[in-house]
């Protein structure tokens, strides 16, 4: 184990994001996220751990689409954590905002408290239609109805790499740990790493003049850092 606990952060480069939704699909596959169907989606009950928010800028015909992938921001001062009556969500030593599914009793208080509204809830019994049930990830809990789920930064991948590296007597190197979304992102808009390691790629990107934090004025100190610069995404 490292002497200093890592602080996992995800860099989202909005200037590179094309809104292709590959990360959404990768996340769905990696984390056993159920699909809810058309009707429930219209009701506002879709279960994506990442959603690509699309905002329009300007007036027709000079109109631009802006894409912003929003996942759980893994806040350091998370509004969702203290309100959970059973510690189903809490802060881990490595800066993750953990969600323990089997501890969750479904008060949905965290969902109401989250300013980013990135927490999703299993409204009905999750179903995995025919071929999908064959591809469930054994490392990730299959959630039942009535509990909150959200982005975990693919903690099962972090742990697996750590255990393997540990067995080989070394520390994980920068870039070795990749959540499913980071691994999939075609334009390399997502970068994952340890902010407490000054030489890591995320540490360098985080100091960029383009970096900002979503709703930074709320003081939640998120673990997701966005980069946004000039005019792109035409």
């Amino acid at each position: 184990m490292a002497e200093i606990e890592p602080r996992w952060v995800l860099i989202v480069d909005l200037d590179r994001c094309t809104g292709c939704q590959a990360c959404v699909v990768a996340c769905q596959a990696e984390n056993n996220v159920p699909t809810v169907g058309e009707h429930e989606t219209i009701e506002g009950r879709w279960l994506h751990w990442i959603h690509i928010e699309r905002y329009w800028e300007g007036e027709y015909p000079n109109i631009k689409a802006r894409f912003m992938p929003v996942m759980c921001q893994q806040c350091t001062a998370a509004p969702c954590e203290p309100v959970c009556p059973v510690f189903a969500t809490y802060h881990t030593p490595e800066g993750l905002n953990a969600q323990i599914y089997n501890r969750c009793i479904g008060t949905r208080f965290c969902g109401s408290a989250c300013p980013y509204k990135t927490r999703t809830y299993n409204w009905l019994r999750p179903e995995f239609p025919e071929p999908l049930h064959e591809q469930l990830n054994p490392d990730v809990t299959v959630r039942s109805r009535g509990l909150i789920e959200k982005c975990t930064f693919c903690v099962q991948r972090i742990r697996r790499i750590e255990i393997e590296a540990h067995a080989q007597g070394r520390e994980p190197v920068d870039g070795e740990i990749q959540p499913a979304c980071v691994q999939t992102c075609p334009p390399d808009a997502l970068v994952f790493g340890d902010l407490n390691d000054p030489s890591s790629r995320v540490s360098q990107l985080a100091t960029s003049h383009r970096s900002f934090k979503l709703l930074g004025e709320l003081g939640t100190d998120p673990g997701v850092i966005y980069l946004k610069g000039g005019e792109t995404n035409v």
Binding site: M1, E5, F87, Y90, T92, P93, L96, A98, I100, Y101, N102, R103, D139, V140, T141, T152, V155, Q156, R159
Partner: peptide, 11 residues
């Protein structure tokens, strides 16, 4: 810190 963490066993 790591071993008694919930995320050690629940993911």
């Amino acid at each position: 810190g790591r071993l008694a963490d919930c995320l050690a066993c629940h993911k």
